[in-house]
């Protein structure tokens, strides 16, 4: 055998091996540094708020709650999920405010959040994380990372540059509905009289396989009262803990059904208020616990964990939320385990 022939054979050995390794590196993101990955978001959240080991990278400040959901049975015709059958489902939840700083001031929070986990008798779970605005600020994950970058504190002032934020909004007309709400709504004085909205759409699937696009809201049964301007850094969390110590708090779960033509995959567009609504039941929260003791601490409120009978829409925010929450969860659980190991 000649030397060049021998060389060609070794080349044939190496080529497929190198090609496969390179393809893997590409898929894993190693050769595409500009690709948006879950880590891109987590790093930006850390850059904006600092690293707080053991805490969620967003919605770091929170309080665990528990309670139950009493289904009215009114939505059972729309979805085969056990949660909607008449009866009671236990719930673990978490109130929070946005941002990666666990010591953020409640008064500065533009939106408020409620995350819930329902565990039905059949063992299937439904997790959701909702906020108080009627629409989300952007419709696509690519715009959300731009917003986070615009909100990054500058080296000079340690605060975001208002000009960058304004420039972002000017370039993103889809933020108009959110900004109109932010500029006009009167915040309430409590988590208890705040409404929480799914924002993203999902499909309900019934026993006959019929699909209905829905969004939903938890509508407070506690009467509205406007918040004071200088209520203190922890007024929301102090208030909700005090209220829960006194007795249960209630919200009605209202499903809003899409009509043909309603934007299912765009969380910046609200659906008409005239759309049909269904009262699916009542959420009753009975007790709260600080982060370290609560059952919610170790839950990743991934909105894509849905029971049989509920299917996510193609809203691109949903996949991004799921991917980024998972990365944040992996990091903080690792940090938490390390801290526990050192104690």
């Amino acid at each position: 055998m000649t030397l060049s022939k021998q060389r060609a054979r070794w080349l044939l050995v190496a080529l497929p091996v190198v090609a496969l390794g390179a393809a893997f590196a590409y898929v894993a993101g190693a050769l595409a540094p500009d690709r948006l990955t879950p880590t891109t978001y987590v790093r930006q959240l850390e850059a904006n708020a600092g690293v707080h080991p053991g805490y969620r990278r967003n919605h770091a400040k929170g309080l665990c709650v528990d309670g139950y959901f009493d289904s009215s049975g009114a939505a059972a015709a729309l979805s085969s999920a056990a949660v909607f059958a008449p009866g009671r489902t236990p719930v673990v939840g978490r109130f929070s405010i946005p941002g990666g700083n666990p010591l953020a001031s409640d008064g500065k929070a533009l939106v408020r959040s409620l995350a819930l986990q329902f565990t039905a008798d059949d063992g299937q779970q439904w997790r959701m994380a909702m906020i108080s605005s009627p629409v989300f600020v952007v419709s696509r994950p690519e715009a959300f990372i731009e917003l986070l970058r615009a909100q990054a504190p500058t080296a000079a002032s340690g605060k975001p540059d208002p000009a960058r934020v304004s420039a972002f909004f000017a370039q993103h007309p889809e933020t108009a509905a959110f900004r109109a709400w932010a500029g006009s709504h009167t915040p309430s004085d409590s988590f208890a009289n705040t409404q929480y909205n799914s924002l993203n759409s999902f499909f309900l699937i019934n026993d006959h396989g019929r699909r209905q696009a829905v969004r939903w809201s938890f509508v407070p049964q506690t009467p509205f009262a406007p918040g004071a301007a200088d209520a203190g850094d922890d007024f929301l969390f102090d208030d909700i803990a005090a209220r829960l110590a006194q007795g249960p708090l209630r919200w009605q779960l209202v499903l809003q059904l899409a009509r043909p033509g309603d934007p299912v995959d765009d969380a910046t567009h609200a659906w008409p208020a005239s759309n049909p609504h269904i009262g699916a039941g009542t959420l009753v929260l009975t007790g709260g616990a600080p982060r370290a003791e609560g059952a919610c601490r170790d839950i990743n409120f991934d909105p894509l964990i849905v029971p049989q009978g509920v299917v996510p829409s193609a809203d691109p925010l949903l996949a991004a939320r799921s991917a980024v929450y998972a990365r944040s969860f992996d990091k903080r659980i690792g940090e938490q385990a390390q801290a526990e190991g050192q104690q």
Partner: peptide
């Protein structure tokens, strides 16, 4: 692919 993507692919 799934852990390095935030697009619909992830889902």
């Amino acid at each position: 692919g799934m852990v390095s993507s935030v697009s619909a692919r992830h889902l």
